[in-house]
Computed example of a mutant assay.
Amino acid sequence: MTTAPTTTATPPTIYNVPNLLTTIRFFLAIGVIALLAFEEYWPALIAFSVAAGTDWMDGYWARKYGQVTKLGRIFDPFVDKIIICGTFIALVAIDGSSVAPWIAIVIVARELLVTSLRGMIEGAGGDFSARWSGKWKMVLQCAAIIIVLICLGMRDTPAWAWQAATISLWAAVALTLYSGWEYILAAAKMLRDGAKS
């Protein structure tokens, strides 16, 4: 009696389309920060919009074509944080951007906290996948940045445009705080359940 040879699945290579897209987004993020330093608001807006708009593509491609890699799982959220946190920090340095230092601090602190919680939970074998509040948080953050960049790029920015920027910034901060709290509760529950088992 002969047995069929066993085959082991070959792990996906790191040289794939999702990781290439993430690499492109990384350089776009660096470009946004550099352009803001030179007050090139419209080119920064274009670069940021492309980077933010293609954020979902690498994850979608990786899942659809089975190209999820350990590098991608680490590199993709890292680049997301460079895009968002780096841009907010750069905007703080620009007079009249409406981005106060405390706004950048809240956003960066939330990202550091959730990243630490994710590393702790997943390091222990748990699943700490992204939640919808976290995804919508990034949508609002991107929208706020885009509106602020448009306002900075206009010669005579109308008052209503800056009001829209202020509202979008407050909405982004509110959802950032809510999302962070939701992740804290989820992590606490996982740790509590793990301690009981």
Rank of each mutant, 00 (worst) to 15 (best):
T6F: 12
A143H: 12
G72I: 13
R118Y: 04
A62T: 04
I83V: 12
C142R: 01
I145S: 03
A29P: 05
I105R: 02
G96H: 09
I107M: 12
A165Y: 01
T87E: 04
V92M: 07
A93P: 04
F48P: 06
F88Q: 01
S129A: 15
D193G: 00
M138T: 15
G72D: 04
I121F: 01
I150G: 11
T176R: 04
I103E: 00
P43T: 11
G72S: 02
I83G: 00
G194Y: 11
L91N: 11
L112E: 04
V114F: 11
T8P: 00
D127G: 01
A4N: 14
P43Q: 06
G194F: 09
C151F: 01
V108E: 02
A29C: 09
I24K: 06
A130F: 10
G31Y: 07
V148G: 05
F75W: 09
A104N: 05
I74P: 00
V106I: 15
I184A: 12
G126Y: 04
K189M: 11
I147L: 14
A52K: 03
L149N: 10
D156Y: 09
I94F: 09
I145K: 09
I145Y: 13
P101E: 12
V68W: 02
I145G: 08
I33N: 03
C151M: 06
A195C: 00
A144F: 07
A37M: 07
I82T: 12
L45G: 07
A52V: 00
M138F: 14
C142Q: 08
T176V: 09
G123A: 08
C142H: 08
V139D: 08
L152D: 10
F27Y: 10
N16R: 15
R25L: 08
R63K: 13
E122L: 05
